[in-house]
């Protein structure tokens, strides 16, 4: 079969379900549930770090997770320090945080702060272990970090209840190696579908307290916080693409066996 034919089928499998909205029931996996429960159990006024370690290429998968996490935190009065280790991530993170903050009435500097980007991932992570304001002297908008009300009682990881890394690359491993191993910071992750299996060793060892896996994880989280959004929509569409691929694999095998029988 010509590969272009396969491409057309994939395009159709994406476009058609978009026109006719389908709602399939989503069951919540254990790693997603664990992260949700962990945040729910945090006392109000706790602080977490949300790292937007991805660029525009992965926003379709990771933005829905970020939105759900922010909604849950703002609802539970959990304060959020957002940052990114990716230069490409600043604009998308800033826009997304503002959108959810407006929706939930969260106040910049009191309920959340966006610190922006600093180069040198390892140095940033290690430096924050000693003093966050020494690495991020100012936030993204240029305000001195030490002057921000919610940062007054926060010096380093000792005051942080959890770090959630939204990742499309290997940043979660770097956070685990430096922030978890050296500073005992609790870490969870939300990752793209391509790197899910890479996270399982850390999940089993307990170095990750929870994991949101790809668009399926995003849909599961939307179900948990009861705000269906893009994650739910995409996962329903993805269902059809998966069905198509399964169909193609089965068809490929039938063709293969027929050919082999004829050759014999």
């Amino acid at each position: 079969m010509d590969r272009r034919f396969v491409y057309i089928l994939v395009a159709l499998a994406v476009i058609i379900p978009m026109l006719f909205r389908v709602n399939l029931p989503v069951s919540v996996s254990e790693p997603t549930q664990k992260l949700y429960d962990y945040i729910e159990a945090l006392p109000s006024d706790s602080t977490i770090i949300l790292a937007f370690d991805y660029g525009p290429s992965s926003l379709a998968e990771l933005n829905p997770m970020a939105k759900s996490l922010l909604r849950q935190c703002f609802d539970n009065d959990v304060r959020v320090i957002a940052l990114t280790l990716y230069p490409d991530g600043t604009t998308l993170a800033s826009t997304l945080i503002q959108e959810i903050a407006e929706e939930k009435g969260a106040v910049d500097g009191e309920d959340y702060v966006f610190l922006g980007f600093r180069p040198g991932a390892t140095q940033v992570i290690l430096g924050m272990g000693s003093d966050i304001s020494s690495v991020f002297e100012t936030d993204y908008s240029g305000k001195a970090t030490t002057e921000i009300p919610m940062m007054k009682d926060i010096t380093n990881y000792a005051q942080i209840s959890l770090l959630i890394d939204l990742a499309s690359g290997s940043s979660t491993e770097v956070w685990i190696t430096y922030a978890n191993v050296q500073y005992n910071l609790q870490i969870a992750a939300g990752v793209t579908g391509v790197i899910i299996s890479q996270m399982y060793p850390y999940l089993q060892t307990g170095q990750l307290v929870g994991l949101i896996s790809g668009i399926l994880g995003a849909a599961e989280y939307e179900r948990l916080i009861d705000v269906p959004a893009k994650g739910m929509l995409w996962i329903n569409i993805e269902s059809f693409v998966h069905l198509l691929i399964v169909g193609l694999v089965v068809a490929g095998n039938i063709i293969f066996f027929n050919q082999r029988r004829r050759e014999e």
Partner: peptide, 14 residues
């Protein structure tokens, strides 16, 4: 998405 479909179609043969 397109490449995964074509690679899966080609690679998964029993």
């Amino acid at each position: 998405a397109f490449f995964i479909a074509s690679a899966a179609y080609r690679a998964f043969r029993a």
